[in-house]
Design a protein around this nucleic acid. Structure first.
Lengths: 160, 160
DNA sequence: CAATTAACTACGATGACCGTAGTGATCATG
DNA sequence: CATGATCACTACGGTCATCGTAGTTAATTG
């Protein structure tokens, strides 16, 4: 993620400079899909980032205004990272990446019906992802997950 | 773009492994927005990639089935790179990245009215990008560019 | 046939990332 | 209150990718 001569005015280039390294979007994914919020939770992800790299990434994302970093009031050893509004704005990008990968990775772990649900109800699903994560939930984990909302039948009506 | 322990089944991770380095999407951008198709055209981009890195990227993207590489029949010194259908599938991702960056980069070079046009007519614009690039055109450059199509008034009707 | 252009490759230097080990602060337990 | 565990990191040496420049080969142009 080092561009030689600084910046170009191109918006694709700006985005890639901000979050276009191999790890940044995985952190965002951990927050959005799995409700992770702390250093060790990110560290335990399948992709095995090293602590120094993770530390640098979290600092960069915080500086870029994508994450909000604050000590956990309940346990002062812990530091929590939440997505800011700017970070929540990355959700549509992640959804498109997931859709592309699900279509082109023969070994994808993405459930086909979930991908189809998101594809066919994209604006509504992106809105639901965003609002759920904003209030502290996630897509797949927790009581108020988007998955739970869908299973409770709140979407079939809205979608089709 | 080196993941230590190989792959995870996560689709976000798969996508990032395939095109999540700092350069791959810039090559795709050069093709889609500016109609570039050759090594030296990519090399001349504002972001100043080095030839060895570009060479490695083009090979990786070709191996991943995103680019199609073939000698130019008209000038056999030249090698052309076109987007495959799989590569054209990256257009929605790029459009979302551009939209996010235009919203959050105070120095963005993206024209606000174009961004708004794409945002408010996303499925139609993505379809138009894709089909235009598929037949050899680009978004901004050339006679059959999407820009030219819009200026000819073919979209105001379709959009609103 | 000389000069130009195109697509790369070579290479040394710099920087990023890797994995492991360690640190200081806070919390849980006896 | 002493001990151990947990938490968020930092340190560090080794490896790997990338950087920028220079060169090589093949095809085309004049």
């Amino acid at each position: 993620m080092k561009r030689a001569n600084g910046r170009s005015a191109c918006p694709v280039s700006f985005g890639l400079e901000t979050f276009g390294d191999p790890w940044s979007l995985l952190v965002v994914r951990d927050v959005v899909y799995f409700g992770k919020h702390t250093f060790n939770e990110f560290l335990a992800s399948d992709e095995a980032v090293s602590p120094s790299v993770l530390s640098a990434r979290l600092e960069a994302l915080t500086d870029a205004g994508i994450l909000h970093r604050y000590p956990d009031p309940a346990d002062r050893r812990r530091v929590r990272y939440d997505l800011t509004d700017r970070g929540l704005g990355l959700i549509p990008i992640m959804v498109e990446i997931a859709e592309w990968s699900a279509a082109h990775d023969p070994d994808t772990g993405a459930p086909a019906d979930w991908i189809a649900l998101v594809r066919d109800n994209k604006p509504e699903m992106v809105r639901r992802y965003t609002e759920t994560v904003r209030r502290g939930g996630s897509v797949f984990v927790g009581e108020d997950s988007v998955l739970a909302q869908v299973e409770a039948g709140q979407l079939q009506a809205a979608g089709a």
